[in-house]
Amino acid sequence: MRWTSLVAIYILFWAFSVFLVLPFGVKTSGEAGAALVPGQAESAPHTFSLKRVLLRTTAVATVLFGLFVANYEYGWIAPSQFDWAGPVEVAD
């Protein structure tokens, strides 16, 4: 596999991992015991640490990408293993 393909796939894993990591560790103002700012939604996070999210996202994406590359190299799971229904026959 070319290195440009690997970079593109890693970026996809990273973008997916952002949405996977975002909900973890979030506390609302009500949970933190702080007063709401006028106009603030009750479900809005009390604090947001971009650095923490970026680090967690990079760690998760790297692990998932490593598993993807290892599977690509060693062939643990092949696409043919997902063909449970068999070939589709088309009537003329």
Rank of each mutant, 00 (worst) to 15 (best):
A41F: 06
S43H: 05
T58L: 03
Y10E: 04
R56Y: 10
G25E: 04
V7A: 15
A15K: 06
E42V: 08
R52L: 14
T62H: 04
A59F: 04
S29F: 15
F65C: 11
F13V: 03
N71T: 02
V63A: 07
L22F: 05
A41H: 05
G39V: 04
L20W: 08
V7N: 09
V53Y: 01
L55E: 07
G30Q: 13
A34S: 09
L12R: 05
V7P: 07
V18I: 15
G25R: 01
A35K: 13
K27T: 12
R52E: 10
L36H: 08
H46I: 07
V69R: 07
Y72K: 15
S17H: 07
F19N: 02
F13K: 06
V63S: 06
T58W: 00
F13C: 10
A34T: 12
T28K: 02
L12C: 14
A34L: 15
V26S: 03
F13A: 12
A32F: 05
F65W: 07
F19Y: 03
V21C: 13
A41S: 09
Y10F: 14
L6I: 09
L67T: 11
T57D: 00
F24L: 12
I9P: 00
V7H: 10
G25S: 03
L64H: 08
V21R: 01
A41G: 09
V53P: 01
V53A: 00
K51W: 14
F65G: 13
V69Y: 13
P45M: 04
F68W: 15
A8I: 00
S43Y: 07
I9N: 06
K27R: 12
L20Q: 02
L6M: 14
F16V: 14
A34H: 14
F16M: 13
L20S: 09
A34G: 01
T28W: 00
V69K: 13
P45H: 01
P45N: 06
L50H: 09
L36I: 02
L20A: 12
A8C: 06
F65Q: 09
P38Y: 03
R52A: 14
F65M: 12
V53T: 09
V69G: 10
G33Q: 09
T57G: 02
P45K: 04
A32C: 08
S43D: 14
F48G: 11
L67E: 08
S49M: 02
V18L: 15
G66I: 05
T62Y: 02
N71V: 01
G39W: 10
I11P: 04
E31P: 09
P45S: 07
E42D: 11
H46E: 15
P23E: 00
G66M: 09
